[in-house]
């Protein structure tokens, strides 16, 4: 190894790293410490995740136990209410119909429940964090690199601590999905609020608006298009992550894809993949059309 190095001294030839023993001790120290901590607080962690577990199970049962035609009708109604576009409704019908025909209905419902819960959590947590970030430059300068790490860290890596803390199952899956999917929600809420026209904010100030009146009456409504783009991104990322999350025991379409990879089941892999694509398109078109409808006031511009 090191000997072929133009006769240079050892430390210039090979990067001087910590010794293997040191590294091993460090690793074991951290890992054991972490596990010990988790073990010590396992009851509390359990109690904290129980509502989430309950929520997930309830929603999944609702999706899978309700007769398929009712669920189908409900989804189409939601798509219609969101988009008010018959083309999108019709496209959703075809997509869901094909999913059913190919025998993926139940898995799709499981995935849908998962994505719905993860997205709702991401919105509920991401919106206030984004608002705080928009209000404080210091908080922003702290949070931006954190979000960068969350988005660039390979998703498999943070599955490890999640599994250590929460074990295997749906709850750790949802938590991993939320961690992965929340950054765009936070970022775009922050961006949307910061981009609100300074003059309009000044006008609100000049009329004596309190900061709450400014937030609800001006900042949030005016940044809604950007926030909706964040919601859209969050849904898309949640859908991408459910496949990875199947490695920690989340069922649904992701599990099928994982099995297909392990066994080289080409057809099953693609069928499940396309089912995910179909759901993604339905979510995407609906949420985008909804976002556009919210900007009704900017249409029919006068120039």
């Amino acid at each position: 190894m090191a000997s072929s190095c133009w006769g240079l001294p050892e430390f210039m030839c090979e990067f001087p790293s910590l010794s293997n023993t040191t590294l091993r001790h460090m690793r074991m120290g951290i890992d054991d410490g972490f596990r010990g901590l988790v073990r010590a607080y396992s009851d509390q962690i359990d109690a904290a995740t129980r509502p989430l577990q309950w929520f997930l199970n309830t929603l999944e049962n609702a999706f899978t136990n309700t007769p398929w035609f009712i669920v189908l009708a409900l989804i189409l109604v939601v798509v219609w209410l969101g988009s008010r576009n018959i083309k999108i409704v019709f496209g959703s019908l075809i997509g869901l119909f094909l999913i059913g025909v190919f025998g993926l209905w139940e898995d799709t419902m499981t995935t849908l429940a998962m994505v719905t819960v993860a997205t709702m959590i991401a919105i509920v947590l991401g919106l206030p964090i984004g608002i705080l970030m928009a209000r404080s430059d210091r908080f922003q300068s702290f949070l931006t690199p954190t979000l960068d790490v969350m988005q660039t860290m390979p998703s498999f890596v943070y599955l490890i601590p999640v599994v250590v803390i929460f074990g295997i199952g749906k709850v750790p899956g949802v938590i991993a999905v939320v961690i992965y999917a929340i950054p765009p929600m936070i970022r775009l809420t922050n961006l949307g609020i910061r981009l609100v026209d300074k003059e309009v904010i000044e006008a609100a100030d000049a009329f004596g608006a309190s900061s709450r009146q400014k937030l609800w009456g001006v900042q949030l409504p005016l940044s809604l298009p950007t926030i909706m783009a964040g919601v859209n991104q969050t849904i898309m990322m949640a859908l991408a992550m459910v496949v990875v999350a199947s490695m920690v025991g989340v069922g649904g379409l992701g599990k099928n894809v994982l099995q297909a990879i392990n066994n080289q089941f080409f057809t099953i892999g693609f069928l499940n993949g396309f089912a995910l694509v179909a759901i993604a398109i339905i979510f995407d078109r609906t949420s985008q059309a909804f976002g556009k409808r919210l900007q009704k006031h900017s249409e029919a511009g006068h120039d």
């Binding site: 026209d197 003059e199 309009v200 000044e202 006008a203 100030d205 000049a206 009329f207 004596g208 309190s210 009456g217 001006v218 409504p221 005016l222 006031h297 900017s298």
Partner: peptide, 22 residues
Amino acid sequence: LREFRRHETAMVFQKFALLPHR
């Protein structure tokens, strides 16, 4: 100051500064 702005003053802006969603 907030009360003063609410009741004693009103302002008109160069670029109108209307609320586009209202």
